[in-house]
Amino acid sequence: MSDKQLQLWEVFTQKKTGMSFEHAGSVRAADKEMALLNARDVYSRRGEATCIWVVPSECISSSSPEDIASFFEPSDDKIYRHPNFYKTPDGIKQV
């Protein structure tokens, strides 16, 4: 393994056209073209994707663990925020 690591990229793959992209993992590459080829080789070797996005990892902003209380807990005790009382029509998938 090289001791000089190339730039880190996050890989998102889409299973089928129209579906949302899901985080698949990360690769290292020197530029976006090579990142795309590497992502294809690492994360879609067995037909897992129909489209791939690569994004420089440094471009992603993430909430931090300290934010959990103020970000996410307020919604936990308010049952009226959840659409539990609606019925999903038959035949609807991917919800």
Binding site: S2, V42, R45
Partner: peptide
Amino acid sequence: GPMLEEDIALTN
């Protein structure tokens, strides 16, 4: 391979 990505690329 020189790195994991290229190892997999070449064997692909």
